[in-house]
Design a protein around this nucleic acid. Structure first.
Lengths: 196, 196
DNA sequence: TGTTTGTTTAACAATTATGTTAAATACTAA
DNA sequence: TTAGTATTTAACATAATTGTTAAACAAACA
């Protein structure tokens, strides 16, 4: 059989990811994706047979990547303080690379896999919520006594500014060169807002 | 001419708004909108001629509503503290009613009207940024010394949790009845995080 | 009651996106 | 060099969406 790997299949997938998750073009067509990848539209069908299948694969990989990120951070063997710092660093990096990825999962992927979510909740989220509770009781977190509110705040502060980049730039008059700098500074700001 | 007003034109517009801005169905068809409004698809074309025109009108009205909200809040003759409280109240109410409205403006409406934005910036945003600066210097805001970072945080904390409702519900195991309660509580949490 | 306006029905044209197929080229490894 | 794989080209079928038109029906109003 000896299937030669030219990397084109991966190129198409990566291009789709870029279009969906970085550029936020939710309704990009197979033609759009083929053009952006610099290949013929037929090739997209040759590798993936249908747009839905390509879509599914891309979303599946995006989910897996998010889970890996949760692994890298929530389950890290670090003090809460360091873990929080690391989370902010890692998630901000990923959010800047793919601003629309989380949003995509929210809006496009309506049907959730109950079992998968329960697994994530039990292995990642639940223990972290418990850690937050401990920190609240220790007086290191003063903004709320509900760990879930804490997590919502954390993710809001990381995700939304990047998501609303164009809105922020125009209304707050932030320049193209300034924006990434502010997102860098933001990491410390978020930490200070949430801890201590 | 004596044009009878049955309110159907408005009904169609309101339905479109609901579908786009509340339900987040970005690519709803004219048929979807007609069905949701309980009218014939032809009628949508009868009133608006094309999907684009309906779309434009709806987006324009959404923008106007946002501007009015800015008027009600940013330009209110209140102390900074009360103004902040009012902003959180008003924006949270609106975000809960139309979670995807801001997002829609971000992702769908790529081309911005430079003049319009400058007007908003000068009359609403700029003076408020100055107010924030004063509060920072007075020591009432400790999280950042950049008013723009403050505003980004404020809007993040208000908008994102509602936007990511389904994600929050599933991963943080928040029930349908609990969620609105938590969004109510959130107003105080946001205020405490940002001020004093 | 008859006319106007609002709304529906049906039929159709045009466009766009998806998906399939067959054949022609290009490339690469044995 | 040649066989097999990768990719392109072209042509086509199908489906979905948009948009138009004409006629029928319903309701209000004068």
């Amino acid at each position: 059989m000896a299937v030669r790997d030219t990397g084109t299949e991966q190129l198409i997938k990566d291009t789709a990811k870029r279009i969906f998750f970085r550029e936020g073009k939710f309704h990009a067509t197979t033609q759009d994706i083929a053009d952006a990848a610099g290949v013929n539209r037929t090739l997209v069908h040759y590798y993936f047979r249908s747009r839905d299948i390509l879509f599914e694969q891309v979303v599946k990989e995006a989910k897996d990547e998010l889970h890996q990120t949760l692994d890298k951070t929530l389950a890290a063997k670090l003090s809460f303080k360091d873990k929080l710092k690391k989370m902010i660093d890692v998630f901000m990096d990923e959010t800047m690379a793919f601003p629309y990825r989380e949003l995509f999962v929210i809006t496009e992927n309506k049907r959730h896999d109950k079992q998968e979510i329960d697994l994530i909740h039990d292995t990642h989220v639940k223990p972290f919520l418990a850690e937050i509770k401990t920190e609240i009781l220790a007086g290191n977190i003063t903004t709320t006594n509900d760990p879930r509110q804490f997590m919502m705040s954390l993710f809001s502060l990381m995700a939304y500014p990047v998501l609303a980049e164009s809105l922020n730039k125009t209304f707050l008059k932030i320049s193209d060169t300034e924006f990434p700098k502010m997102m860098k500074q933001r990491r410390q700001i978020i930490f200070d807002m949430l801890y201590r």
